[in-house]
Design a protein around this nucleic acid. Structure first.
Lengths: 155, 155
DNA sequence: GCCCTTATTGCAAATCATTTGCAATAATTA
DNA sequence: TAATTATTGCAAATGATTTGCAATAAGGGC
């Protein structure tokens, strides 16, 4: 069983919480999904298994997981008000969002620690965490836009 | 006259737009304010000069400035749904938010370009922009929390 | 396995930042 | 100065997320 799911069981046990069918389903989706779904997207996926699942339950589950630090929520500039949720991996990771297709790619870098300490040193603040978001065109949309440009030139 | 304000005049002229008292007021505040106000905060400040100013006007002005790339809007993790607005400076800059007092400090770094090119090279995407947000305690809240800890130990 | 307690759910209504429709107002320009 | 129409203020709408509450169902004890 995955880290996420076993951790969730453990946290529930220690808090007197209950492992419901809804939570089990949402956890298994979050665990296997290689994406960063919105609450709504997660609901749609989950409803294939449990058509009565409610959006409130999705939100409550996500918020609980967030409080337990098993999931993190992020807002991207392209979708101002809609959060995307992400099972927290052991290592700190960052995001790239394609401004065209809105797909999110995770990435990792050792360079952020330098930025953190640079800022700590110059400001006197203590930095506990940080995140980077990059925007641009993903490889396939990049190809698409090159193709479009060619079309325009030819047409 | 500042860059922001003269730019705004220029854009309005070229679009057949009008420089109203409300816009002039909001621009002068945004221009001089060394902070990252929310729309509501901006309204409160502006109402000292024009008590009838409406929140819709503030939003419309901010969105127009954003579309003109003269102001940028950001969401921080600590305030999930409320945007903060920021007159765009000539150089790309990043943000630190104090998790205690919610104050925002801007900072600059040459290290992001390395992260961008690192990611571009490894992913095949083309990155057009990026932003870093750091969270932690600002110098004064840091002092406060040190003081608290001492209190706890002594008391 | 069945009962009891109460955590969790589904539903509908509430929130809250932001947006929009519209009639009234005020910048521009002729 | 008048005419045109961009912009405003107001109230109502929106849309993601949250919350109150009665109904349901985990999980512990019998």
């Amino acid at each position: 069983m995955s880290e996420l799911i076993s951790q969730a069981y453990e946290r529930l046990r220690s808090q007197g919480g209950r492992m419901t069918n809804q939570r089990r389903l949402l956890l298994s989706i979050l665990d296997s999904l290689g994406e960063h779904p919105t609450a709504e997207e997660l609901l749609l996926i989950a409803r294939k298994q449990d058509p009565d699942l409610n959006l409130s339950t999705v939100y409550r589950t996500l918020r609980w997981l967030e409080a337990e630090n098993l999931v993190s929520a992020r807002l991207f500039a392209e979708e101002r008000r809609q959060e995307r949720f992400d099972a927290v991996l052991p290592s700190e990771h960052h995001h790239f969002m394609c401004t065209n297709c809105k797909n999110v790619i995770e990435f990792d870098t050792e360079l952020l620690v330098d930025i953190k300490s640079q800022f700590q040193d110059s400001s006197g603040a203590s930095v506990s965490m940080g995140s980077i978001v990059l925007y641009g065109l993903c490889p396939s949309c990049r190809q698409g836009s090159v193709a479009q440009e060619l079309d325009r030139e030819v047409g």
